[in-house]
Design a protein around this nucleic acid. Structure first.
Length: 479
RNA sequence: GCCGAGGUGGCAGAAUGGUUAAUGCGACGGACUGCAGAUCCGUUUCCUGGGGGUUCGAUUCCCUCCCUCGGCUCCA
């Protein structure tokens, strides 16, 4: 198991990672409330934690990665009520489209997506315990957590309840003993999905589902909790109060990781501001690899500004530069096989290729500095670009060695994946025929015909490039 | 107001108590090309928000001020 460091938002410092029960690492990431389509801000967080899980796996840890799904809450009920759809069905519909987007994005590290409503028995049992331990009280058919009973409330966020400003969005609820108390069991209102409980029919509050899930799956203490930093207060503060109040054990979480938010022209991207760019649209327009590069090209704790018409276009150019030498190696190996004869690797190149994975792991092992790792990969791509056409002369073994850094990028960053679709497969059969026709036209000097073929392919989204070794083609604008 | 994260070149965005502050995008010049694109090579001097302090040396550590963003019970 490789040693590494990470920033812990609770202690506010970079700490060495020590697993609770090695080699197991329990990782929980707050998932989505699927009341609408996901946008590219959401995906930033989940791509990052995908990289965390991938890296830990590479380093010899056994990761159990869980991401909850809040499939019932006020917003879902409100949204479903507008169309007459069942809120649970609405949630499931959007959850499935989220999962499809994750597949496209090569987010494959999540082992389990628990749905909140599947944990109602655990939630009810936890509420019973909290009432017995006097952290919670029932009133008017609901149950509330009494924040004043939990002394450490505010430790994560630095917030003190008495400093909370009146007039902020504290919900007005006369049943509460104090304004900062929050609901953990919500009394039923007509038309909502409800469950029976000792306090009357109702449904779970938002904060409690995560702790019911992690207490069940991980126990009273686990390794890493991740999310966007907009969830620090009150959500994570509430999770700590709920879990530690329930078990009497602390800390609930050994390392808190919070990702910076994606902004759009300096403002947070959110549905309530109306400045969203749908994830599925971004995937259609730029492909998953460009998106992953865009996200991982910034430090995860920094804000990342998205500018429409600029950010992803830049990332697309950068990705082409970054990925191209690796793609050429893949093409040669695919065409002629890894046993292909050829020149051995010059010592210097072999040494550099061999040294890179360690440098890359070290970069990522310093608070997951993906940007540093990507800078190293750019260096390697430029190095190979300088090798030029000589690449064609190397043996299969030599080429395999040269590809090692790209293999690392594929394994850990989830880059350099080719994402063939039905469309790509069909083009792969047809484009070479058109290229051959164009080559014949060029050979006989009929450049008008040659340009016509190139232009028509370009209009269809296929880009041609003439090289000394022949004409290569790619889809314009996708990873 | 309180809590937190930030402020680095034309733009995006890393890093570090110490010779030329990474990397990418863009731009410019050259090579290549029937042309173009792509690619390759080279160039891009003047860049660390303001003011103090500690230090032989600060962009980095400390204080202070300014600005931006986020949170303050919907939020990745």
């Amino acid at each position: 198991m490789r040693r590494f460091t990470l920033y812990d938002s609770m202690s506010r410092e970079i700490r060495a990672f020590v697993p609770n029960t090695p080699p197991r690492v329990n990782l929980f990431v707050c998932g989505l409330t699927p009341y609408d389509e996901a946008h590219i801000g959401h995906a930033r967080t989940f791509v990052f934690f995908d990289v965390v899980a991938r890296a830990l796996t590479r380093w010899g840890y056994r990761v159990f990665s869980v991401q909850n799904v809040t499939n019932l809450d006020d917003k879902l009920i409100e949204r479903a009520g507008a169309t007459g759809e069942d809120p649970l069905a609405l949630a499931e519909r959007h959850f499935l489209s989220w999962r499809i987007a994750c597949e496209r994005l090569a987010i494959r590290s999540v082992n389990y997506y628990p749905h909140a409503t599947d944990y109602t028995p655990e939630i009810l049992a936890q509420i019973r315990t909290l009432i017995d331990r006097r952290y919670a009280y029932a009133a008017a058919g609901s149950v509330y957590y009494e924040v004043a009973k939990f002394a450490r409330y505010g430790a994560l966020s630095g917030q003190r309840t008495e400093a909370l400003r009146p007039g902020a969005r504290i919900e007005v609820d006369p049943a509460k003993r104090a304004p900062e108390d929050f609901v953990i069991w919500k009394a039923a209102t007509p038309g909502e999905p409800t469950w029976e409980s000792p306090w009357g029919p109702g449904r779970p509050g938002w904060h409690i589902e995560d702790t019911a899930i992690t207490l069940r799956l991980f126990g009273p203490r686990y390794d890493i909790h991740g999310a966007g930093l907009d969830l620090i207060f009150p959500h994570h503060e509430a999770e700590i109060a709920l879990a530690e109040g329930t078990t009497g054990e602390a800390p609930l979480v050994n390392y808190w990781m919070h990702g910076g938010l994606l902004t759009m022209k300096g403002e947070k991207m959110s549905k309530s501001l109306g400045n969203v760019y749908a994830l599925s649209t971004a995937l259609d327009e730029f492909g998953p690899m460009v998106l992953r590069l865009f996200y991982l090209n910034a430090h995860y704790r920094s804000p990342l500004d998205f500018v429409r018409g600029k950010s992803l276009e830049e990332a697309r150019e950068a990705y082409a530069t970054l990925a191209q030498p690796g793609q050429r190696i893949d093409e040669i190996l695919e065409r002629e096989g890894p046993e292909r004869a050829g020149e051995p690797l010059p010592d210097e190149l072999e040494r550099e290729a061999g040294a890179l994975p360690e440098l890359l792991d070290a970069a990522l092992g310093t608070d997951f500095n993906t940007r540093e790792a990507i800078a190293l990969l750019f260096g390697w791509s430029r190095r190979l670009a300088g090798v030029g056409e000589r690449l064609e002369t190397f043996s299969g073994e030599a080429l395999t060695n040269l590809a090692t850094p790209y293999d690392w990028g594929r394994e850990v960053l989830g880059l350099f994946e080719r994402t063939p679709s039905g469309r790509a497969g069909a083009w792969a059969a047809v484009v070479p025929i058109a290229i051959a026709a164009r080559a014949r036209a060029r050979a006989r000097g009929d450049f008008a015909e040659a340009d016509r073929i190139r232009d028509e392919l370009k209009a269809a989204g296929v880009r041609l490039e003439d090289h000394a070794s022949g004409t290569r083609w790619s889809f314009a604008g996708t990873g």
